[in-house]
Design a binder for these strands. Structure first.
Length: 328
DNA sequence: TTGTGTTTTATTGCCTCC
DNA sequence: GGAGGCAATAAAACACAA
């Protein structure tokens, strides 16, 4: 019994071949051992043929009919080299490989049959399958790793691309904000502040309309998604004059007649670095929060936020020479 | 020939299942 | 409790460069 309390192949013998088998081009021969014959060491060396001998490879000195001296040598070899490992022959390996491909699990009956066919001890067959499964598993893990690596690379490339787009958009927002501030820097302060209170009913009304329009499209200008709510609400504003040039607000201390409740930190430098993806999405998709911020009126063809965008231009017609065309 | 890295065969200990 | 699977590991066999 092996030191783990395990009995291997019904004996504690080293893996010694019992008889020639699986010779190239020849069908495997039955094993005496498995045919109910006495243990190999009792059979004499005639049955103790190494794998190399079986295959006829390794310039074997042995044959099916050997001298007594040879048998004696092999008997000694059995005891003296019991720790030596014998490699399976090419044909035995081919046979085992085919069997493994058919089914990598080894039922007892199949194990015995394989051992019989190959002239191996059942334990050797079991060990071979066990090691083969381990190799297969390692290979499988390699393949899985490669697949995951490729997937990761693709996602990372996509992420980098989107990050770059995001940075470009931030830069454009900054430029537009600067332009806006410069454009209205000299606005007559005297015309100004009739600042409506935050709870201004008109603003709230616009806000509500904006919400209601979020899911509607605007066939008129072909812009959808990103600016739909703003464009449609802007259209409404044109109609009922709820948002006109006489409404004046301030951006960061700069008099602005065009924005309501403008959060300058948002307009001038929205730092979304800490935003969650959802927040990022809301920032880019809606561009402005649904309330109470309002964009100035935008005309078709005026939007050009997408100089860096191709497929992801958020519905903005691309025009590299004009960013936002603020139409009042 | 020899040193070294890799592959293959086999062992050990632990775990699960029946 | 025995049989068998698996992970970790040992060690022999093998490949190959220097």
């Amino acid at each position: 019994m092996a030191s783990g309390g395990r009995v291997y192949g019904g004996s504690n013998l080293p893996p010694i071949m019992l008889q020639p088998s699986a010779a190239p081009g020849c069908p495997p021969l039955d094993s005496f051992y498995l045919s109910g014959s006495p243990p190999p060491f009792l059979l004499g060396s005639t049955s103790m043929v190494s794998f190399e001998d079986v295959n006829g490879s390794g310039n074997s000195k042995r044959s099916l009919f050997r001298s007594f001296d040879q048998e004696e040598d092999e008997y000694d070899e059995y005891f003296n080299q019991s720790g030596k490992k014998r490699r399976l022959t090419v044909d035995q390996l081919k046979f085992l490989e085919r069997s493994f491909e058919a089914d990598n699990k080894l039922e007892p009956d199949r194990k015995l049959q394989l051992a019989k066919d190959l002239g191996l001890q059942p334990r050797q067959v079991a060990i071979w399958f066990q090691n083969r499964r381990a190799r297969w598993k390692a290979k499988q893990m390699e393949r899985d790793y490669d697949v995951l690596q490729a997937s990761f690379n693709a996602l990372k490339a996509d992420y980098d691309r989107l990050s770059q787009e995001k940075e470009d958009l931030k830069v454009q927002i900054s430029i537009l904000s600067d332009e806006f501030v410069q454009k209205h820097q000299g606005t007559n302060m005297a015309e100004a502040p009739q600042a409506l209170p935050p709870e201004n009913p008109a603003a709230a009304s616009i806000s509500e309309e904006s919400k209601q329009d979020e899911n509607s499209t605007s066939p008129k200008n072909g812009n959808k998604g990103v600016l739909d709510s703003d464009s449609t609400s802007t259209k409404k504003r044109e109609g009922d004059n709820m948002f006109d040039a006489d409404s004046h607000y301030y951006i960061s201390g700069v008099h602005s007649p065009h924005l309501e409740h403008v959060d300058s930190s948002f307009i001038l430098e929205p730092d979304s670095s800490d935003l969650s993806q959802d927040e990022d999405d809301s920032l880019s998709r809606g561009f402005l929060p649904s309330t109470p911020y309002r964009l100035p009126k935008l005309e078709p063809g005026d939007y050009s936020l997408a100089s860096s965008s191709t497929s992801r231009n958020f519905g903005f017609p691309v025009d590299d020479n004009a960013f936002w065309s603020w139409s009042f």
